[in-house]
Amino acid sequence: MTTTPVTTGTTGATDRVIGYSRAINEALAEEMRRDERVWMMGQDIGRLGGVFGLTRGLQEEFGPMRVRDTAINETFIVGGAAGAALAGTIPVVELQFADFLFTAADEIFHKLAKWRYMHGGQFTLPVVVRLPSGVVGGAGAEHSQSLETIAMHVPGLKVAVPATPSDAKGLLKAAIRDPDPVLFFEHKGLYRVKGPVPESDEHVVPFGSARVARAGNDLTVVATGLMVDRALAAAEQLAPQGIDVEVIDPRTLVPLDIDTIVASVERTHRLMVVHEASRTAGFGAEIATQVQERAFFSLDAPVWRVCGTDTPLPQDPELEQACIPSTDEIVAAARALAAI
C-alpha cells in the first residue's frame, strides 16, 4: 500500500475533459484491446450498450462473444464469471444495479471471495463486477443503495468507489489487471459528470492509495462517490468562514489507505466521515474506529458521521434526496464539529 497520496483533479497538459461514463467505456475498450482474455457479460450490455450506456460501441468492436448479452440471471453472470476465471479468462461483468449483488450474493461472497482460499491458493479469480450504485432519482429502494460496506465486510473482495472520471478510468484499469476479484461501485449520479482524464493508455490508479481532493488544515472530511463533490462544495462554503477543510477520497475501501487519513487527522485534529450508505455499521464506523485506535491523542473532538438514513430509500426523488447527506448538512455538521 502506498502512503503517498496521488492528487488528481487538476488539468495536466495531456488531459482531456470527458465524462465519468466515457472514462469507464474507454477503460473497458483499452483493456480488451490490450488483453484478449478480457471479456464481458451482462444484461443488455451488447446490443443496447448497457442501460446506462456504459458499454456502447464495445460489441461492435469486439464482437458478440466478447461482449455477451445474458438472460436475466445474476447468479450466472457472477458465478459464471468465477468459473470462467478458473479457465484462464478475465471476465468483467455488469450487474444492472449494484443492489442485485444480493441476488448474486452466494456467487459474490462465497465463490468470488473464497474459492481461492478454500482450495489452498490453487486458483486466482481475476473478476471485475461492475455495480452501478447509489441514488440517481426515483429508482427506488432496490435500485439505489450504496452497498460498499457490505462488500468490505467479507474478506476476499477488493472494493473500488471512484468519484471522478479520472479515477473511474484508472481504477477500472487497475481492477481488470488485478488478480483478485474486485467489486467496482460506479456511482450512477456521477455518470454525466465531466472531468480531466490523462490521455495515456497506461493511466492506472493503484488500489489502496487515497486521493487528497482538497488540502486543508482545520478538519478532515473523508468522503466517497457522490459525497466527494458535496464535501468539496461544503469546503468552498466553509473556507470564507475560516474553516479550512481537507477532503480525502479513499478511492478504494479494500484495501483502505488508512495511513493517509491518519496522517491528515494528526494535522487537523478533527475527523468527519460522509457517506451515502446508511449510517449504522457503515464504513464510517470502521474508519472512525481505526483512526481512534491509531490517533486517539491527536483528536480534539469526537469523530462524527454524516450519513444516509437508517431507512430504505423512498422512491419519490425529493424524499430520496432527504435520505442522503446534502451539502448544507455537511456544512452545518462541519461548522459544529470545528467549534468543539
Partner: peptide, 10 residues
C-alpha cells in the same frame, strides 16, 4: 451449476 457453465463459456 453456474460456475460450470461459466467455465464452459470460457
Amino acid at each position: 451449476f453456474v460456475m460450470g457453465a461459466g467455465t464452459a463459456a470460457a
